[in-house]
């Protein structure tokens, strides 16, 4: 403990003053636009500040050599962590720009898409089956009887689609609304991560089991933003925020690069 006999108070005060000054400098530097150099300036200043804290406040300077090696090794490990991860990220082909334009083409005209998708087709039912098995079967069961492996834990129990009973209505639009928003007060979650196309496919698949499949009415069509005759509104009042689910991105990339 001999190394703590002399007084460090003056050093602490100087270090404190420099740290305060560097904080002001980094804020000022960030408000000036140097382009990409901004990041390097900010990181350089942060590293000077960090070094001051480590060397003087934590007095790693003057500490046992073993402690110095141990602590500095953290930054060696951190470098390995960052560089190996980045080597993977950098090696990937750029995908984002392609996807963004593609998706906006579809969701930008949501009403038209909704009007088309709300009518069941065999292809949709088939597609819905695959999505159902991946997303829904754990709770609702592979046979749509509400007896999935996870159903045991739930109260209220997941819907048995063969019963013909619909808590929030069995019209296509109402079932779609339930898939999209979930059922508050029950474990049924909102599947906002699925595309409208995928949600409709699931809706048509689920309804194919039910002995009770009422048709849409004015009220239920309004629920998904369609006019009473089932056609899209001319002006969409809702702002559409495009979502990019991973599966959909992959699908688009495959389509674009046969």
């Amino acid at each position: 403990m001999s190394d703590h006999k002399h007084d460090h108070r003056k050093t602490y005060l100087n270090v404190w003053f420099i740290l305060m000054a560097l904080t002001v400098i980094t804020v000022v530097a960030a408000s000036i636009n140097f382009g990409k150099i901004n990041l390097f300036i900010a990181m350089a200043i942060a590293s000077v500040k960090a070094s001051l804290v480590i060397l003087y406040f934590m007095h790693l300077k003057g500490d046992a050599t073993l402690n110095q090696v141990v602590f500095l090794s953290a930054f060696g490990f951190l470098a390995v962590f960052v560089l190996l991860t980045l080597s993977d990220v950098i090696a990937r082909p750029p995908v984002a720009p392609v996807v963004v334009t593609k998706i906006q083409g579809i969701t930008g005209n949501q009403g038209v898409v909704m009007a088309r998708l709300r009518n069941s087709t065999p292809e949709q039912i088939q597609k819905g089956k695959a999505i159902y098995m991946a997303q829904c079967a754990t709770c609702h069961g592979e046979n749509a009887d509400g007896l999935g492996p996870a159903a045991v834990a739930f109260n209220p129990k997941p819907r048995d689609f063969k019963s013909g009973y619909w808590k929030l209505g069995g019209e296509p639009s109402r079932v779609y609304h339930t898939v999209e928003n979930g059922m508050p007060g029950t474990p049924m979650p909102a599947f906002k991560g699925l595309t409208p196309e995928d949600r409709w496919a699931v809706v048509h698949f689920i309804r194919s089991f039910s002995p009770n499949t009422p048709a849409d009415t004015r009220a239920t069509l309004a629920l998904i933003g369609l006019k009473p005759d089932g056609t899209p509104q001319s002006v969409s009042t809702e702002k559409v925020i495009p979502e990019l689910p991973v599966d959909f991105i992959i699908e688009q990339i495959v389509k674009e690069n046969p």
């Binding site: 500490d63 046992a64 073993l66 402690n67 141990v70 602590f71 090794s73 953290a74 930054f75 490990f77 951190l78 962590f81 960052v82 991860t85 980045l86 990220v89």
Partner: peptide, 24 residues
């Protein structure tokens, strides 16, 4: 003290994982 420096190393790597996510 040595034990505590080792703990601080693990702390840096704990936050390190989040910083890696940030960088990526």
């Amino acid at each position: 003290k040595l034990g505590f420096w080792l703990f601080l190393v693990s702390e840096i790597l704990l936050f390190g994982g989040l910083f890696v996510a940030y960088i990526v």
